[in-house]
């Protein structure tokens, strides 16, 4: 705005749209790069598209994809359950319980998942047999001058701790540590007045957590849990290190090394993971919408804005 000068009326404003020369340069550069990339995809023989499509839906690969999916689901369910337990323990007024939860979280967050999975794959060395019975049964019976192990029944550790179970266990325990932190943040985001009101109305601690605190904490817990699920789906590829053989990445790689066509099978892996995570992202969007219930309009908008881009991994 300019001040009118002298007595003359200001001239009508001639509106000229603001020009964005930088924007046009950017568009041209991106367009050229995209064209080059597409050209390479179509003309470089190393991609072997036909070979890739012929093999990426072969039966072992489909079985591997199925394993990947159910391992993701089961590991996440176990992870969430462990996470809730760890979070509640972390917030316990009892210092022994909360330190135990802290130690758990510390260990499983500090060790890389690959190392953890290889470690679990080799647990069979530690225990030849897994048994159920008295804790320290052998030593206790020894004290009373008796012989025996105090064991009710036992099985060969290598049978229970098959590659898949070991892998699943490793992923779940590790996920439990991360989920524990997420759930704890969720619980702590709820006004303590809520728990107090619930208690004043005659709800016990468990009921208060289950009916009042956790449902409200869901709004804070769900978005990062979606991210964790997507990360978990990708991390199932690490099962190949346990090793688990009927898993998607292992199967694709196996075809690659058998046929000496490594690269096309790696591209196939990318496409498989891309499509599976995309489905999860859509699911995440609707879940978040559902858990935003009971939030004021503005807060809801803010929440969706804040979580959808990160949640969906756009940008």
């Amino acid at each position: 705005m300019t001040e009118p000068t002298g007595q003359a009326r200001p001239e009508p404003i001639k509106a000229v749209p603001v020009r964005h020369p930088g924007r046009w340069v950017g568009i041209v550069v991106v367009a050229i790069l995209t064209a080059m990339f597409l050209h390479m995809l179509l003309t470089n023989d190393a991609f072997q598209w036909q070979f890739m499509f012929d093999n990426m839906f072969s039966e072992p690969v489909l079985k591997g994809a199925w394993t990947t999916l159910w391992v993701t689901v089961v590991a996440m369910i176990l992870g969430v359950v462990i996470g809730v337990i760890i979070a509640v323990m972390r917030l316990s007024p009892n210092p022994v319980i909360s330190s135990a939860a802290f130690a758990y979280t510390w260990f499983f967050r500090a060790v890389p998942r690959v190392v953890l999975l290889v470690l679990f794959g080799n647990l069979g060395i530690l225990y030849a047999e897994v048994g159920f019975g008295l804790p320290f049964g052998e030593q206790l019976l020894g004290l009373f001058g008796l012989e025996g192990s105090g064991q009710i029944f036992g099985v060969d550790a290598n049978k229970i701790l098959s590659g898949l179970v070991a892998g699943l266990l490793g992923l779940s325990l590790s996920e439990g540590a991360y989920m524990g932190e997420i759930v704890r943040a969720g619980i702590q985001s709820i006004d303590p007045g809520q728990a107090e009101a619930a208690q004043a109305l005659g709800m016990g601690r468990g009921l208060t957590m289950q009916r009042i605190v956790l449902p409200q904490a869901m709004r804070v817990i769900v978005p990062p849990t979606g991210n964790e699920t997507i990360a978990m789906l990708k991390d199932t590829a690490l099962l190949a290190f346990v090793p688990v053989t009927n898993e998607l990445f292992f199967q694709l790689q196996a075809i690659g090394s058998r046929t000496f066509q490594v690269f096309p099978m790696l591209v196939a892996a990318c496409l498989w993971y891309l499509s599976m995570t995309s489905v999860l992202m859509v699911g995440q969007y609707f879940l978040e919408k559902r858990f935003a219930r009971g939030v004021q309009g503005r807060a809801k908008e803010k929440l969706l804005k804040a979580t959808v881009p990160t949640g969906a991994g756009i940008e």
């Binding site: 007045g193 009101a197 208690q199 004043a200 005659g202 709800m203 009042i212 219930r293």
Partner: peptide, 19 residues
């Protein structure tokens, strides 16, 4: 817990459950 179910309590800042 039984005691509280027999005593009405209107809490400071209302304390309704928003969900």
């Amino acid at each position: 817990v039984a005691l509280r179910r027999g005593i009405g309590y209107v809490i400071q800042q209302v304390g309704l459950f928003p969900h």
